[in-house]
Design a binder for these strands. Sequence first.
DNA 1: AGCATTGTTTCACA
DNA 2: TTGTGAAACAATGC
Length: 272
Amino acid sequence: MPELPEVESARALIAEHGLGREIVDVDDHDTYVCRPHAPGEIKAALVGHRLTEAHRQGKSMWIDTDDGPVLGLHLGMAGRIVIDDSAAGDYWSDGGRKHLPVWDRFTIHFADGGFLALRDKRRLGRAVLDPNLSRLGPDAAEVGRDAFRERVGHGEAPLKARIMDQSVIAGVGNLLADEALWRARLDPRRPAASLDDAELDRLRRDIRAATRRAIDRGGVHTGAIIPHRTRDGVCPRCGADMSRATIGGRTTYWCSNEQDQLGEHAAAIALA
DNA sequence: AGCATTGTTTCACA
DNA sequence: TTGTGAAACAATGC
């Protein structure tokens, strides 16, 4: 995903078009996407029921049923939710043309002839009964100021790795992290514990702003910094070269001028 | 051919 | 024991 904004779109799609329809069949034969369930297990639990409410925390969704089990859905790296003629989720799509029905890894068929599918070309998405969400931190778009300070402002791990840790706050992925840190003018390499309260508050504000903007505009790929995440990219604010490194296991881009609080530039300022 | 990819889990190691 | 980072997972696109 699909990061928090895409998942919220998918949740909204389910809430609008997927609820209240009687389930008559389920295709859960993909044992990787549906692990650890055996084929037929999810089907047996869902047939005869209806989806009643769609929830989301971070990048995880769960759907309540009427007196049945909870269905957990995760879009993984490239998943989207397709309901009849509508879709939401993965944005590397050309109106769905590149998302083929053969990539439906989990499908619910309704009595009215329609369907809800997890369409995921890479099979890193997940469908599971009664998902365990206990290790998920508070939603990145909802977390309060004090909780954010407390959870994010600790540890020696790089700041970017900290905000992408789903047990710290849930919902921030690689692109949203780069976007929010650029907006907040914070160096992704800094130890999380080195931030003061003002910086943490600024980061929280910019995560929320970037998330809201992405939801409104159709996905994290609409972020201001995303087109400049290239080897020869420049900062759209100041024109300086973008720096590039692997941080927290993911390719990271940041402004070599405004977000350099560890390197030569920062050292020069400190001396002056 | 080789590398990179918007996510999560597991494993090794300090 | 806790925290951190790399590798694995699966499949596709450049």
